[in-house]
Design a protein around this nucleic acid. Structure first.
Lengths: 163, 163
DNA sequence: TAGAGAGTTCGAGCGCACTCCAAGCAAGCG
DNA sequence: CGCTTGCTTGGAGTGCGCTCGAACTCTCTA
């Protein structure tokens, strides 16, 4: 199955500190950024290419406060960093799992406000995790229904093929 | 078309004479019908209550062809049957798992057209099942990211609580 | 120096899945 | 009889998450 494009997700927190080694889960798979730190200045179309988000959407994300401030050239063009890419990959995951944009904006705000918001961030993510778990359960139960019905159709097909 | 729908009945022990006995999966847990077959004439608000769908939505489903023809009283009020309830519970499951309304309308059309459409129905459901499976994978992978981040926040919290 | 191409902003528009509204009809009750 | 409650319709409105267009600037190559 889709092991979605790998992505080092570490933006809400300092991507700086070395990543704590977790036993139960080694964390998101750290896949290389297209450009090494130091030369990580991506144009909007490069980011669009990399993330699959349209340039329009990227600008819109910034407008609504969903991006943590993107650097600009002296003429005002955006230059995204590896850190921005990390953030976008988190955002994309959260979106795909149905977190409303408003909640993500809230989370982005909290990140901007610094360490004092750790507790609320934890809460927000925990709530979303519960959501996700519940949706997985829902999907599984639908899978049962689908299996059941598909079996019936398949049986009918096989029966008709036999004669 | 007055042709009775040929939709594999998936719920209602009481409703059907005999249901196909499946070995691998006994089918979805049949949510019992509030009223026994024969007296199953529900008003729109009863159905709304039972399904959690608003009366507005129920009428809208009918308008767009997502309901297989609902009986009416002599004055034109809708009276839903147990069969309608079963259909709605399938529709609800499909909706919750992200099947577009247009696809469900297509499926409803096929059901109306009778047994000759079994193959296409099977295809449609199989495609959706693939979709659902993929989304489960996606959700699982996000769960990993969430666990990872929540752990970090929790560690920070515990650390700060210690001092 | 001209022209292509990629970037910018702001605001309008779109598709989906509802959600609501206005106006009207029918049944039951005091 | 009037009142309330619950239903009917067609059509307009809403909220979300983009998506697009117009008009303009900047950069690069020939």
């Amino acid at each position: 199955m889709t092991v979605t494009q790998s992505e080092p997700v570490t933006s809400g927190l300092a991507a700086t500190a070395e990543r704590p080694v977790k036993v139960r889960n080694c964390g998101p798979p750290p896949l290389p950024h297209p450009k090494p730190t130091g030369q990580d200045r991506y144009t909007i179309s490069e980011v669009s290419e990399h993330t699959g988000l349209s340039a329009h959407t990227l600008r819109w994300y910034e407008r609504i406060g969903l991006m943590p401030h993107v650097n600009r050239t002296h003429t005002g063009q955006r230059r995204f960093s590896n850190r921005d890419l990390d953030w976008l990959s988190l955002v994309t995951k959260l979106r795909l799992t149905g977190m409303p944009v408003a909640d993500m904006v809230r989370y982005a705000e909290l990140v901007r406000q610094g360490e004092s918001t750790f507790a609320e961030r934890e809460q927000l993510l925990t709530a979303h995790r519960e959501d996700v778990r519940q949706r997985i359960t829902e999907l599984q139960s639908t899978l049962d229904v689908l299996d059941y019905k598909i079996d019936i159709y398949a049986d009918a097909r096989r029966a008709s093929e036999r004669f």
